[in-house]
Amino acid sequence: MPTPILQVRDLRTQFAADGGVVKAVDGVSFELYPGESLGIVGESGSGKSMTALSILRLVPDPGRIVSGQVLFRDQDLLQLTGEEIREIRGRDIAMIFQDPQSSLNPVLRTGFQVDEAMLAHGRPKRDARSRTLELLKKVRIPAAESRYKDFPHQLSGGMRQRAMIAMGLANAPAILIADEPTTALDVTVQAQILELLGDLNRELGTAIVMITHNMGVVAGLCSRVLVMYAGEIVEQGPVEQIFENPQHPYTWSLLRSIPRVDALRHERLRSIEGIAPDLLQPPSGCRFHPRCPFRIEKCFHDEPRLQDVAMGQQAACWVMMKRAREEMGADKLIDIRPGAASGVHPGEIA
């Protein structure tokens, strides 16, 4: 196993709210290896974006990283001074966001902004422009010379996101964090951007952390995936294994709740009942238990930890899908209400 380039250990990010503290990220640990493409999937409120923002200490007010370590090349990013972390941002770890419109300065020319990204980290001014043009070509912006002079509003959404990626790559970072980079784009444009990211990952060896809610995006781009729910990682592992043999009921249900464009039969979607948990008062025990058909008594009061379920795959569940399949008939399950498969309902809990 190679040495990880980034190690996140027990990261906790919280927000002060009216009625208490929102634990947006609650004890997240993972590694990122050089050149790999890691997906972080989850629904809104799962903490996936906050995890990404915490790595670069970009958590918006009133959020606060309360504990944990983010080790990059043997230094803890959470212990650096403001000046030092600014040096890391954009040079070693770059980030692109969902909305390229608001990430670009509307009154400056696009090419100039890419130049700036390089100059900010002390590259010589001489070759900035030629390197920028090279980058714009690399992200497949057609007619790069004339686009260089365009203002951001003159570019389409897809072009702006390409320009953002060019800025991100300006200093050949070791890691590129992409926070829902294609969510605001049309599918045909999304496909192009994903293909571009995949190629850059392979050609330049830049490690990519892909934050997304879209399982299809993960399936196409990533080699490893973390599944987050209510501020915690509930399952992680190689993409093929997670998609083929998920062990956490949340992952399993999520994969069955998405219609597939290549489906040849009409199968009723397997929704996840209930609503996302209120992070001000997260459920006791396993946070997924109020929505889980396979829960057992233990799930109500004991919090499961991640444990190995297969080579490189870990899940945090007291039951696991293997048992749910064998003992609760998960594959043939029709009633998907919480506790339906296991027969465990709150009234019966001592």
Partner: peptide, 8 residues
């Protein structure tokens, strides 16, 4: 009955 849910 299957989907009766509580308000936030």
């Amino acid at each position: 009955a299957a989907v009766v849910v509580r308000p936030v």
